[in-house]
Write a protein that binds this DNA or RNA. Sequence first.
RNA 1: GUGGCUGUAGCUCAGUUGGUUAGAGCAUCAGAUUGUGGUUCUGAGGGUCGCGGGUUCAAAUCCCGUCAGUCACCCCA
Length: 429
Amino acid sequence: MSRMMCPRGTDDLLPEALPALDHVFAAFHRTMDTFGYREIRTPMFEETALFVRSLGDESDVVSKEMFSVQRGDTNVTFRPEGTAPVVRAYLQHNLDKTRAFQKFWYGGPMFRFERPQAGRSRQFYQLGVEALGSHSPLLDSEVVLLAHRAFAAMGLRNYRVHCNSIGDAEDRTTFRLVLRAYFQPLLQQRCDDCQRRFERNVFRMLDCKVPQCQATNKAAPQFLDHLRPASRARFDESLAVLQAFDVPIIVDPGIVRGFDYYTHLVFEVRCPDLGARDAICGGGRYDGLIEQMGGPSLGAVGFAIGVTPTLLALEIQKHPAIAPRENFAAVFVAPIGDSERTAALRLCQQLRDQGIPCDTDYEQKSLKAQFKSADKRGVKVMLVLGPDEVQNGRVQVRALHLGQDHQLALDSELAAHVRQLLATTKTAP
RNA sequence: GUGGCUGUAGCUCAGUUGGUUAGAGCAUCAGAUUGUGGUUCUGAGGGUCGCGGGUUCAAAUCCCGUCAGUCACCCCA
């Protein structure tokens, strides 16, 4: 079968699926407004060098997951994540010099060339925030609180925020030595991946999922115990704030994060209902990034929500806003025969002009068939036009959801009547 | 990139140890004394059984390949 299909790892969002996406975006947007974050939109693709510089050419994303396009001597990449583009825009427009501290949110598709699986695709949607230009520990807490409130606004239940601190560059240098010293004699017992991680990124050995590795991880030194007092105090301060706001926190030494630019607070939101891939949000502080990208030494903190897994979680939890919805026009004008077709179109348009979503028949269906299909599409009000109605300047109005019939005049009052019928809900008998 | 599972109608699936014109439910469309929905009844359309090759008198069924989907690993939202 050689039918055309959308490329592997992509999905068509059909009309009935979009209300779910809208629900998540709208809840996020509302939350951002109340916290004073403003939306920013950057291009879908950037110069490849931007991501190489921010993520590091050692990272998996850069080394094997980028959607890149070479055109003449320019090489661009469809954005695999949202942080680097926002920081780039911030610096490009000299915001660091005019109003250094700014809070942004963004949302939209991201692209990574990887093997699709449950809750993960090659084009996926992220909603994220970036609070740029401040080192304040208060912001660390605010950002986590913000993620929590956003999920709450979406109606998600049963999730936990896993938090950890990985200190600053100095803490990490120290801890790297401590970890290497600990793992060196145990290296024989570790899996192949950990053998590689020992040199490349020791920290990742801490969240290895292989059972034999987890055994030696239990007694492994923890970041939190090797932070300098100032770093440790800052983490404790953040935790205290979050506990005061009843955020479901779990301190989890296994949270290490993949990208190089993270510092101090790192966190992940997980929803156990999802099974193997349970992370729905990841973020933290990344104090080195702005400077790394050619800007001044300013702090930054943010997170990104994976919309796809979030929708999956809401679906599993049977959230009503996620169910597929047929969003057809609520009013339908049904001409009985061909002679009423023009009048029907005119009436239909008249209601549309009044802001009432309205549709009519285009296929010369029988009246019965029009009723049947209208019922299936969730139409609430049917307006029937036959020869008699047209001649008398009247229309038959049937409220399908109420089971009521009315005869109404085709005058300026009609729209108001229809509007009223739409607003009426069926009362229990 | 690695591994497991799965490909039969628009959807969910039957299809007996290989054996005639491949079935059901739902969905779609049309009817049930000719201007009215949801229930019910009747009927219709719709499939080169993912694709290619092989074994056989005979393949949806067995074998090989390939493509696609899916789940998991690596990594990550």
